[in-house]
Each structure stands twice: as C-alpha cells, then as structure tokens.
C-alpha cells in the first residue's frame, strides 16, 4: 500500500526546473531515503509535499487523497510532519514548549476554553503534557525540558525537532538531513531512533547526505539529480548503479556541470 505518492510532480522557479516530472511511491511502514548531489532538488521535494511550495504540474496523493493546494497546516493535520535541514526550532521557548506546540493538532481547546480555563482545557492540557514528556523521553531530552531550545547542542536540537514532529502521532515523518552536523556516535543513536520510530508504525521518508546512515537504515532509496529521478531500489542496487556513481563522482570525461543557482531550492 502506498501511503504517499508523487505523480509527475514538477516545479520551476523562474526558468529553472528544480523538480522535473518526478514519480515517487512511499510504501506504508517503510524507511525510504531520497539522495542526490547538492542542489538536486531533495529539499524542494519535501517543501512540495508539506505544501510550502505548490507544484507547477503533477499531483501529490496522501492515502489516495490529493494534497496539492492544501496549506501546510492542513497537511500537518492529516498526518505528515517534518524536520528542517536548517534547524527551525522555536528557539526562545523551552524544550517542553517546543514539543507542546508539536501537539497542536491533537488538541481542541481554542480561545474560549483557554480564557475561561474550562475543565475540557484542563484535562486536555494534562494529556498533551504527558504526551510531550513521553516524546522527550523517547528522544532522551526529558532532563532538558526547561532549557531554552537555542541553548541545546546541535545534536540535541536535531532530536528536539524530531520530537516536535513525532509527538502529534504522524502517519509519515519527513526527515530533512537529520544527521547533518552530528558526530559518529550521535549518528548511531539517531539510526536507532529512526528504526524505533518506524517500529511504532510511522513511515519514514528521509533526505540525507550521510551514506553510512542511508545505506544502514534505508529499505529503499530514490536518487535525484537535476530534479529528475535517476535510480530507485535497494541500497545494494543503488551502490552499484552506474548513473548514480556518475552523478556523484562524474563520468571521468570533461563535461561542463555548471551548477544551477540555488534560488528556491535549498
């Protein structure tokens, strides 16, 4: 069963086609990786799925339902959450508050309940706090709950972002370079975490540069170059694929590979 499907998705910025007629199927419950050289359009794919960009052409289906055109907050509500390549935390707020904001879609209490502090709001608040603490616990951040997010170490910030995305029980989690800036030990811990998350039934779709991580945990890999899919398959198959090797290392012949300007695609 495909949980998420990109069909013929295309987006251009000015004259530049960042993602070109891309088809990707994410199967329910798998760990899928999207790799490719810098500027291949990987993050753009995530931005398209989460509604930050609107595709110029093509459709994105989530559980066979069209996502295209929905605003980002609706897409999050449907069960797609993400982390960002350049960490985007609520940096002046505490770790706990960051995760509590992550529970936003689970709650119901709006303005009225907040102002009269109704019983509904109280019981809900208690529930959300428990959930938030559980998520922090899961990612090993429970003892930092009162710390400001900006004061965490780099690796901790990455984990906090995952906690924030995970706490709302998403059906699919998009991780944008989760291992960037982590040391080897942190990376092993991260791999463990990602596997554990998948075991709770969450589908994982990740963009990553770190090949140890990608080859270590992915069940399938999609390779992107210049916005086009150039290969797809198991880690073993991808490792031996000629066009992948060429995209990463070049063909050995001189060929002008002027990188496109990275406006928009980042």
């Amino acid at each position: 069963m495909n949980i998420l499907e990109l069909q013929n998705v295309t987006i251009s910025f000015g004259g530049l086609t960042a993602v070109d007629k891309l088809d990707i199927q994410v199967k329910s419950g798998e760990i899928l990786s999207l790799i490719g050289p810098n500027g291949a359009g990987k993050s753009t794919v995530f931005n398209l799925i989460t509604g930050l960009y609107k595709p110029s052409d093509g459709a994105i289906l989530f559980q066979s339902e069209a996502l295209t055109g929905s605003p980002p907050y609706r897409i999050a509500k449907k069960g797609i959450t993400r982390t960002f390549q350049s960490i985007r935390l609520f940096s002046e707020l505490s770790v706990l508050h960051n995760v509590l904001i992550g529970t936003h879609v689970l709650g119901q209490a709006g303005l009225f309940h907040s102002i009269i502090r109704s019983p509904l709001m109280h019981s809900e608040e208690k529930e959300l706090r428990e959930k938030a603490m559980a998520a922090l616990d899961f990612l090993g951040l429970a003892d930092k709950e009162h710390e400001k997010a900006k004061n965490l170490s780099y690796g901790e910030q990455r984990r906090l972002e995952i906690a924030r995305a995970l706490v709302s029980n998403p059906k699919i989690l998009l991780l944008d370079e989760p291992a960037a800036g982590m040391n080897p030990f942190e990376k092993t811990v991260l791999m463990d975490i990602i596997r554990k998350i998948r075991d709770t039934g969450v589908t994982i779709f990740l963009v990553e540069h770190d090949m140890t991580l990608v080859m270590g945990i992915s069940e399938r890999i999609v390779v992107l170059d210049y916005g086009k899919k150039i290969a797809e398959g198991s880690p073993v198959k991808i490792r031996q694929n000629d066009s992948v090797i060429e995209a990463y290392l070049g063909s050995g012949q001189f060929r002008s590979r002027i990188r496109r300007k990275e406006t928009g695609a980042c």
């Binding site: 980002p72 999050a76 509500k77 609520f90 707020l93 508050h97 936003h104 709001m121 995305a165």
Partner: peptide, 22 residues
C-alpha cells in the same frame, strides 16, 4: 494554553509553526 502557545510559535518561526499544524 494551547492557543497561546500557537501564538508564540507564530512569533518564533512561521514556517515551523505551519509544519506542526498551526
């Protein structure tokens, strides 16, 4: 409250806020 935290999230980072459903 949930409501107030969502407001703080908007102040801190609009894109991140939207990504968690605000």
């Amino acid at each position: 409250s949930r409501n107030g935290r969502a407001m703080l999230a908007v102040r801190e980072d609009e894109i991140a806020a939207e990504s968690v459903g605000v």
